[in-house]
Design a protein around this nucleic acid. Structure first.
Lengths: 243, 243
DNA sequence: GAGTGGTCTAGACCACGGG
DNA sequence: CCGTGGTCTAGACCACTCG
């Protein structure tokens, strides 16, 4: 009865995973070569390769040419977060999405922002501050700076009707991004905006996105920051994922 | 001179990425089929498949049989965090790792812990509290509960010399995990342990791991929580990643 | 030097799902 | 139905790196 089902890369992956979980192959152990496993499972070597490659990408296996494949000593688990548009994050919870612009203006960015965005001393930028609402209650406060040198078209956009978040996703190319998670204390203004108490601990996400000059080979030197955004979530926010 | 370099899946992936970034193929657009691209790049179809599969996994493309491959409308970016053992997280910064046990005891878990771990009303569990140090300064406080029903061997371990974190990674099978990020306010005890001021906002990570009864097909019903840990980081901690 | 993983090819069959 | 992606096969060559 065993020869009936067709061998697929997932079959192999499941069996290998099982043997690791069952400690048949222990951390640090060398497991059979691709060719040996292919013979055992009676499938092509590339099928085994596909199965093991994914396990190596997720950190379960450690593969090196000539050295062979070992069960990872320290199974560094990898957590994956989907970073959707805020509208999606809110509607996904079943709540109604709302948006309220707080301020949009061309201004001189403060020094820390100027430094983070690598802007010249006299460069002006567009600041957009807005609240994203879930069922009419404040969900997250967005404090964004947009580099007008990189996205001049942003200056003419009416951000009372569309969030900077969504406009940028659709209209600005970006090739690289950074995300930083942290915790911050609610000051008086944040507390008022988010309906929190001053002193509350708030979850905070900072994003920066770059455009590595299209087509240019001079990589990160020529990169310019397109936008920087600080998202401060309301009290009690939790970001969850599975391993 | 163009025919000189061998076509590889990465060549194809780079070119497809370039066309998307350059808006040659715009969000929502149907791109050529695998067969067409294989003809264009003069390579095997499976090579194109490999290239596009990765882009689909990262959310850049949306692929459906018969419907073809489209550029994703909402480029949901995916942030990946490596969750290493704390020792690695600390030594990776160049700091010296240190560990100090605060408390290890078999005890009655408080009700919230009992609920989160799906423990019976009379079940006892092992609590392990410890500080992880970077260059002798508190880096993170670990407040952990271990289900002795799932990992009885934990009861005999001397957690003064090895952290529960590391012991469990090496000795406990787990098949599924959950990670939750949040922000919390430092109370008097946390402030003292972490060298923070009471009222500071602290970054907090909660982890739970399950063992889905090995081999059983009754999946998540039969699962038991192996351990739950709350990691509270010192003030100013930031978790960073690239998109 | 030689063993191991990384990848490509050409052809084939299958599964899904749009029309 | 039938086009499209998903996968398998057998063979081949290459790149890395350990011994």
């Amino acid at each position: 009865m065993t020869g009936k089902t067709r061998i697929t890369w997932q079959t192999v992956q499941d069996e290998v995973s099982r043997r690791i979980k069952a400690r048949i192959w222990q951390p640090g152990d060398l497991i059979p070569t691709e060719a040996e496993l292919a013979a055992e499972f009676d499938c092509a070597r590339v099928t085994v390769n596909r199965a093991l490659r994914e396990l190596a990408e997720t950190g379960v296996l450690d593969r090196r040419r000539k050295a062979g494949t070992r069960v990872a000593e320290h199974p560094t688990r990898r957590a994956v977060f989907d970073i959707p548009i805020l509208r999606q994050e809110i509607t996904a919870t079943g709540a109604r999405y709302g948006y309220a612009l707080v301020r949009a203006a061309v201004a001189d960015p403060p020094v820390p922002v100027r430094a983070a965005m690598r802007l010249g001393a006299d460069a002006r930028a567009l600041t957009v501050q807005a609240l994203h609402l879930a069922d009419d209650r404040p969900f997250v406060f967005e404090d964004r700076w947009i580099n007008l040198g990189a996205v001049p078209a942003a200056q003419t956009v009416d951000f009372t009707s569309i969030s900077a978040n969504e406009w940028l996703v659709r209209n600005a190319v970006f090739s690289r991004g950074e995300v930083v998670f942290s915790a911050t204390v609610a000051d008086a203004r944040l507390a008022e905006l988010l309906g929190a108490a001053p002193g509350d601990a708030l979850f905070c996400v900072d994003r920066r996105t770059w455009d590595d000059a299209a087509g240019a080979d001079a990589q990160r030197e020529a990169a310019q920051v397109i936008t920087q955004a600080q998202l401060t979530y309301g009290p009690g926010y939790r970001l969850r994922t599975e391993l």
